[in-house]
């Protein structure tokens, strides 16, 4: 059986020392091993950004696509092979700015994949512009006088879009994060995991210390019940979204795969590509 070391490849990440994404990478590798995957059974699809490089740093099938489109690519991969474990990943700009449309629709479509967002409240790769996750007033290269737009609340947004698995974590909480990714992989449907993953180079506000001070662990809230959607929403609002842990999970709603009529039980990639003549004759007869 594969261990997390089998999910390491020999490529050295080009992230800045201290970047939060290192821990996300480690957690992903551990989670993959913990759920019993072999490297070839995992496909990691990523977007463009510092975080988007992650698919190149994991020993598995990896697809580094275009900015904002990791989700539709990942959903296509999953539709092609329902036996694969598919993880989509990328930055907050990737998922909540250019790719926001896909995020909402992936949530409501509920295809059985896991989406990990490395949320650093900034555009790292393009060297420090505002992101839809930057707080109002946040000064960046593109908002020198401070952002005058409201930050997106991705967890609340996910709940309203009908998400069946919503979780948030902090990259230094390696154990919790690993467990959440495992739970996300096992969840039958779309799982969204937003990870606070500090950018040590361009975000001097939302630092490791800042998160330590401001985050509340749901496990510290007595009696928190992740199956209660209404309470999940209230908790998010109360804490301004700054909570970590499993926020909400609906285990009853079937995944997209289970609902598609006629969808092949075995991977579609193994489907017979030929039709028999008799079936073909039936098709053409409709046009006589």
């Amino acid at each position: 059986m594969a261990t997390f070391k089998d999910f390491r490849n020999n490529v050295k990440p080009n992230w800045c020392p201290g970047c939060g994404d290192f821990s996300v990478q480690a957690a992903m590798q551990r989670a993959a091993a913990n759920v019993g995957l072999e490297p070839e059974q995992l496909a990691v699809v990523s977007g463009i950004g510092c975080s988007g490089r992650i698919s190149g740093y994991i020993n598995s099938y990896g697809f580094h696509g275009i900015h904002g489109r990791s989700l539709p690519i990942a959903q296509g991969v999953k539709m092609a092979n329902r036996d694969l474990t598919v993880i989509a990943s990328g930055g907050d700009g990737d998922g909540f700015a250019i790719g926001m449309g896909h995020t909402i629709h992936a949530i409501r479509r509920n295809i059985d994949i896991t989406y990990i967002v490395m949320d650093n409240q900034i555009y790292g790769l393009t060297k420090g512009q505002t992101s839809p996750r930057s707080a109002a007033g946040f000064k960046t290269k593109s908002t020198p006088a401070g952002s005058i737009e409201q930050a997106i609340s991705p967890m609340e947004m996910a709940l309203t879009a009908g998400a069946t698995f919503v979780a948030q974590s902090f990259s230094t909480d390696l154990k919790d994060l690993t467990a959440l990714i495992e739970a996300g992989i096992k969840h039958k449907g779309f799982s969204l995991i937003n990870v606070f993953s500090p950018c040590v180079t361009y975000n001097k506000v939302n630092t490791y210390d800042w998160f330590k001070e401001n985050l509340t662990k749901l496990s510290d809230i007595e009696g928190y019940d992740p199956s209660n959607r209404e309470n999940a929403m209230q908790t998010l609002m109360k804490h301004d979204g700054l909570v970590t842990g499993l926020i909400y999970q609906n285990t009853e709603r079937p995944s997209y795969q289970e609902l598609v009529s006629g969808y092949s039980e075995k991977p579609l990639s193994e489907a017979d590509l030929t039709l028999d003549q008799e079936y073909f004759d039936k098709l053409t007869a409709e046009f006589v």
């Binding site: 296509g76 539709m79 479509r109 579609l268």
Partner: peptide, 21 residues
């Protein structure tokens, strides 16, 4: 799958083709 837009349509098609379908 009727996608949310054509960018999703083409990238989903790329993903599925990559996946072997």
């Amino acid at each position: 799958i009727q996608t949310e837009d054509e960018i999703a349509a083409v990238t989903m098609a790329i993903g599925a083709n990559y996946g072997g379908v």
